[in-house]
Every structure is written in structure tokens, then in C-alpha cells.
Amino acid sequence: MTAAAAMPRHRRRLSWTLSGYIARQYMLWFIVFLLAISGIVLLAGTADRMDRMANRDGVTFGIVLSVAVFRLPSLIQETMPFVVLGAAMFTFWRLTRTNELVVTRAAGVSAWQFLLPAVALSVLVGILTMTILNPVGATLLSRADQIEESYDPTPGPSLALRGGGLWLRQDQGADRLMLHASRADEETMTLYEVIVFRYQDEEFLNRMDASSATLEPGYWAMRDVWLSQAGTPTIFEREVRIPTNLTSRKILESFAPAETLSFWDLPEFIRLLQEAGFSTQQHRLEFNKLLALPLLFTAMVVLAATFSLRPQRRGRVGLIILAGVICGFVLYFMSSLVFALGISGKLPVAMAAWTPATIALALSLPLLLHLEDG
């Protein structure tokens, strides 16, 4: 007779004492896994930054370490599903190995009930990750990027969005251009209602007002241009070409990456992107991914339970736990694929962001139901 068959039909309510005990066990393993993975990520991040910044002038080990530390919260956010999965697996495995859960289930407490403390804590962790860890990580990641750019001998263009349009800075030797446009066409890389301020060695040269500016290979093609310069009359030109080393890819990459924007700032930035005429796929996907974190962490706990609640006498415990870890990695790679499809527009953004968590929960719930009720 199995343990499930030996259970009484009457179900008891989960006591606060038992709930607190399971929650403490879960939080203990959560902290252990969080610290262990954070240490590994920090070592790997330091080695990666050393490789990237080793040949730059003035870079010391302290600077490399500070960049790696600033990047750590953002990287921890990416590994948090594995922390939740590992903590839940070891919590349930330990309670099963010591027969504590067997006794609990024999007393009439179902698997669904003693999952509640871990699920509740995981949902809380998801909310805190979304609302606190993400903003902190985004701020520190931006700071890390600024430090790296300050030691980069060939900085890229700088692009900023404001309520009145977009600003683009182009540095080319001693010449500097500051372009302002009210909107843009991403497909043709054309800016509309353009104002260009030209500087040389930090000294203002002139201003150009144009109806449009299209990025061509090696130059900006500006049309219907009014050229203003101190001490001279304003001149009208049908077309003016301004040399540039920019490309469409460089300009698009100069947008603030979604990872450097906090959960609270993303909606406003998405609105500004839409008004400026640029794609919002990546940023909307990031926002929906953050909203899906509580559901994803819940799925990780249920997935862990399906692999670690099996009675020890059935053997092959190590293989079962290994299977759970492999499932976690498969889910990670599947998520990366689905997210890529969402960014490329092959899938709706909301579907791409919520699919991994939904699939993981939809697959693990029936397995847990079979384990609990036979």
C-alpha cells in the first residue's frame, strides 16, 4: 500500500506552526542558493569584465570589480528562477527524506496545503524582485555602463527621449552634432522636423533647421534646410549632406536597453518610444516579463514539488532531482527562444512574456495531481 493510499480521506487544515516551519526551511535554502549563485555570478562577471576592459587605459582591478558588483543585482534577477527552483527542491527533498512530509500527509494534510507557504513566499519574492530588485539593478547597471563608456576610446552615439521628441549626439573627431527631431521613421531611419547644432572643439558653429534628415551610408541627407550662423544672413538650401559614421544599428543600440530601465520607468519610456516612431517590442516584452515573475516563481515551486516529493523508498532520488534541474534549464532555453520570437514580432509580446510560466505551471500541476491523488 502506498503512502498516498494510506492517508485518511479527511483533510485537516494546515496549522500556523507547520506553515511557519515549512516557510523557514524554504527561506533557509533560498538564502543558501541565493548566496551561492551570487558568488558564482560575481566571479564570472569579474572575469568577463577583466577580459573586456583589460586593454583600456587607466583601468584597474578596482574599477573592474566595481563594474562587476554594479552588474550583480541585474544578473541575480536573471538567475532568480533557478534560485527559487533549487530552494524549493531541496526544501521538499529534505522534508521527504526525514519523513516529515510523509507524517504530515498521513495526518491528513495534502501536498497542496503544505505547498502554500513556499508558493506564498515565492509570490512575495516575485513581487519584491519586480518592484525593488529590478529598479535597484537597473540603476546600478546604468552606472556600470557609464563607467565602462568613460574608459571606451571609441564611444558610440548618445540618444535620449524627451516629451518633445528625441535628441541624438554624434561625435566625429573634433566635430560634434546635436540633432533634435520631433519624430522618426525607424524603417527608413528618417528624422522629421530636425534641428542640428554643430560644434567644433566645443565652440558653436551654426544651426540648421530641416524638414527631414535621412541616414544614408556615410552621411545625413537633410532636406529643405535653413542654415543660421552668427553674423551672417540665414541661407536656404534644398539639400545638405552632413558626414557621419553612424549606422541604423548604432542608433538603435544607443537607446536605453530595457534592462537599464526600472519597472516603474518602463511604461513612460514605452510611450515616448511610440511617440518618436520607434519599435517598443523589446521594452514591452521586458515589462511583461517582470509582471509574469510571481507566476513564474509559483511554477518553479510546483515543478520542484513534482520531482522532490516522491517517497525515498522508490529509489533513484538523485536521478529524479537531476531531472528536475534539467527541466529548469530546458524551461530557461525555451524562454529565451520565445522571448526572441516576441522581440522579432513573430509572437505577440504578452504571449511571449507569459508563455514560459504558463506552460511550466500547466505541465507541473497535472504531475503533482497524479503524485498526490495517484
Rank of each mutant, 00 (worst) to 15 (best):
E202Y: 04
L205N: 07
D224I: 06
Q170D: 14
E186L: 05
G164K: 15
R176D: 03
R169Q: 11
T154E: 15
M222N: 00
F204N: 10
T188R: 12
L191H: 04
E186P: 11
S211W: 09
G164C: 14
A160G: 09
A160I: 14
D185Y: 02
A174T: 15
Q172H: 11
Q200G: 13
T188M: 08
S182N: 10
L205T: 12
T154C: 07
R169T: 10
L227Y: 04
E149I: 10
R207E: 05
L227F: 14
D185K: 04
F204Q: 05
L215Y: 00
S150A: 15
A213R: 02
M208E: 10
L177W: 06
L179I: 06
R198G: 03
S158N: 11
L168C: 07
R162T: 13
G156P: 07
Q172T: 10
Q200V: 08
G218N: 01
A174W: 10
T188V: 07
S150V: 11
M189G: 07
M208S: 04
E202D: 12
V225W: 04
G164A: 15
A181D: 06
L215S: 00
S212H: 05
G156R: 05
R183L: 08
A181N: 01
W226F: 05
N206R: 00
Y219Q: 09
L205A: 05
Q170V: 12
A174M: 09
A213M: 07
V194Y: 02
N206G: 06
L179E: 01
E193P: 07
P157S: 09
P153S: 07
T188F: 01
G165S: 08
E193H: 12
I195L: 14
G156V: 07
T188G: 02
D209Q: 11
S182G: 11
P155S: 14
G173P: 07
S158L: 08
P155E: 08
A213H: 02
F204I: 05
R223H: 10
L205R: 12
A184L: 03
S150E: 14
R183E: 11
R198M: 05
V196A: 12
W220N: 02
S211P: 04
L168D: 02
A210I: 09
L227S: 05
L177P: 05
D152V: 12
L166M: 14
P155R: 08
L227V: 13
R169E: 09
A160Q: 14
N206H: 12
P153N: 00
L215N: 00
T188L: 06
G173Q: 07
T214R: 10
E216D: 11
G156L: 08
D224W: 01
L177Y: 13
G173K: 04
P217E: 13
G156I: 08
D185E: 09
G218Y: 01
H180P: 09
D175W: 10
M208Q: 02
A184D: 06
R223I: 14
W167I: 13
D209H: 02
Q172F: 03
M222S: 05
L168K: 02
P217A: 00
E186T: 02
L205G: 04
D224S: 08
